[in-house]
Amino acid sequence: MHLVYLHAKNPNDSLSVVQTHFSNIYRHIERQLENKLIPSEDSILSYHAVSYLNWHSDEWRHPKELIKKIIQKMEPELIQDWVIEFVSNLEETYKVFTKLFNSLDTYTEFTHLLMVKKMAVFWPLVIKTFVLDRTAKKDQFCLAARLMEVFAVRGYALSGIRSDAGLSTLYAKARDFDGNYMELQALLFSMSSWWDMENRFSNSIESPTFYNQNRIDATYILWRYENYLRSQTGRKVEHLSWKHYLKPKDNATKLSLEHIAARKNPISEIVVEWDEGEPKHFYEVATHRIGNLVIDSISANSSMGLQPYFIKPCNFHYLANIFLMML
Rank of each mutant, 00 (worst) to 15 (best):
V271Q: 06
A186T: 09
L327Q: 13
T93V: 12
A186I: 07
V153Q: 07
K247V: 12
I311Y: 14
Q185H: 10
N301Q: 10
T20M: 08
L37M: 08
L246R: 00
P76G: 08
E30S: 09
D58F: 13
S51K: 09
Y228P: 00
K138T: 12
K117R: 15
S207P: 03
I25H: 07
A8K: 03
E183Y: 09
M191E: 12
S268N: 07
D176G: 00
S231G: 02
D217R: 07
S43E: 15
N180P: 04
K137F: 10
L170R: 03
Y94Q: 02
I38N: 04
T129K: 08
Y52F: 14
W195Y: 12
D58V: 11
G277P: 04
D139G: 01
P76E: 01
E75N: 07
L187D: 08
L33H: 09
L33Y: 15
S299K: 06
A252W: 12
L104W: 04
R224N: 11
N321Q: 13
T233L: 12
G305A: 07
N265Q: 04
Y309D: 03
Q32E: 06
W123C: 05
S103L: 00
E198M: 05
N199R: 14
H259C: 03
W274K: 11
H317V: 13
M326G: 03
R175N: 15
I298T: 11
D296N: 13
W223C: 03
E41S: 13
Y318L: 14
N12M: 02
M325G: 01
N315D: 15
E85M: 03
V237E: 15
K64R: 11
S303Y: 01
Y181P: 02
S202G: 04
I79A: 11
L33C: 04
V18L: 12
N12W: 00
A320Y: 15
I79H: 03
L114Q: 05
R230N: 05
M74A: 09
G277A: 03
K247C: 10
R289H: 02
T135N: 02
Q80F: 01
